[in-house]
Every structure is written in C-alpha cells, then in structure tokens.
Design a protein around this nucleic acid. Sequence first.
DNA 1: TTGACGCATTCCCTTATCGGCATATGATTG
DNA 2: CAATCATATGCCGATAAGGGAATGCGTCAA
Lengths: 112, 112
Amino acid sequence: MARAATTTDAFNAVAELRRRQILDLLAQGERPVGDFVDLLGLAQPQVSKHLRVLREVDLVRVREVGRQRVYRLNPGPLKPLYEWLATYERRWNERFDSMDDVLDDLKAKETD
Amino acid sequence: MARAATTTDAFNAVAELRRRQILDLLAQGERPVGDFVDLLGLAQPQVSKHLRVLREVDLVRVREVGRQRVYRLNPGPLKPLYEWLATYERRWNERFDSMDDVLDDLKAKETD
DNA sequence: TTGACGCATTCCCTTATCGGCATATGATTG
DNA sequence: CAATCATATGCCGATAAGGGAATGCGTCAA
C-alpha cells in the first residue's frame, strides 16, 4: 500500500502547500482558474489538478460562467481538522508540565 | 517532483490516520512503543516508522527507560495548523451567504 | 465557420510512501 | 556470557503524487 490518496480526506488534500494557498485566495472570494495561475505563478494544468483534488474532497465548488470556471470555497470539510486540533490547542501553552521538556530543549540547542 | 515528504511539516505528518491515532493516545500520557502496537493493532516496525516521522517534525519526544523508549507528546508543531484553520472556522457557519450553495446542495442530492 | 480562449485531461518520469518481513542493536536477566 | 526483550532499520513491492508538455473540448468573437 502506498500513501493515502490526497483525495482521501481534507487532511490529505490540505497537506499540500499549493492547495492551501489556493484556499487562502478563495477565502477572499470567488475566482476563475486563471487567477490562480497568475497569482501563484503555477502552470495552468497543475492548477487544474490541484483544484480537482480540492473538488473531490468538496473543499471547493465550481460554477460555469461562459468559458470560465469560477471556483469558490466550501470550508465545511475543514471542520473535522479544526476539531481534532482543538483537543491539542489547550496544551501548547502548558510548558510547565515536566522537567524533561526543559532538558530536551537544552539538548536540542546543543545539537544545532 | 513527487509529493512532499511526510516529514516536511506537521501538515504532512498528520495527514496519516495512524499517526493521528498515535498522537491521540499520547494526548493521554506518555507511552512506550509496545503500547501502540497493542492498542492500535499495528506491527511493531510500522509503529516505529510512524514514530520516526513524528519525531522528525518534533511532534513527539523520546526518553529511554531501560530497554524501552517512552514517547510523549510535544504539541507545539500543531499550532500553525490550528492557526491556519482558525481563519476558516468562522466561515462554516455562514451558510446564508449565497444562493448558489443551496442550488449546489440540491444538485448534489440529485446526483446521489 | 474558423480561430482564439479558458480549462481539463492524459502521458511520462522521478520520487517517496506504507506495509510486510527479516535483521541489527542495546539493555536486561539468568 | 547466552538468551531474550523492546525497538529501530533495511530491503522489497506496489502505488500514486506532482511537475512538465501536449492535447482535447466547449465557448465566444470575428
């Protein structure tokens, strides 16, 4: 078995930086494919491919306008990620828990 | 170029379900490798490999105790993910924005 | 109609994943 | 020391991602 497909779920789809960038642009509003090509400096085919992945996990929706395809964000599938992370959010402030962490940090700096 | 390495960042490391399960167990407290083998029903080598990935992105820290390696959670690297998602969190409740979404939903149900 | 435009799809190539299995390594016990 | 336990590593096979380049396809303008 190889790595899980990028279209398995939002976790995998969003692991790719380019797709996150696409979503970030969509967060500002609808956009046709060409916009991503221009704004992200990617080749058109790659943009279409990334959009396809995002479509398959339902993170984006398309609307046809003439010869353009206008994409827009559908954030719903991100909710599970956010909720999973929320469990951990409380923790990265509790640095006081164990002495080990402090020791580890010192070690880490030595190894630099 | 192939897909970004799983050790590129927490986004990629956490895309794998097994690794999320490991982190979930660690959220309850420190644990030696054998625990994951038993609790997740995975082969020992695969567990070690997943732990290696988590170590490389610094999501877990190890401590040697006799012949065991006790792993513990280091949630820090998850912070960027949480913050990225926070931008979208506000949105999945605003379903009132456009009529298109409603239409899309209807279409989606037809296609079932 | 024809041609240009906006996108999607396909093929090729390189690379890395993940699982299974065997084995190496370090610590512990008898 | 020898045997065993707890883990880590190495190797193999199968799978698919992602970029590049070429091409297919529906739409619109002249």
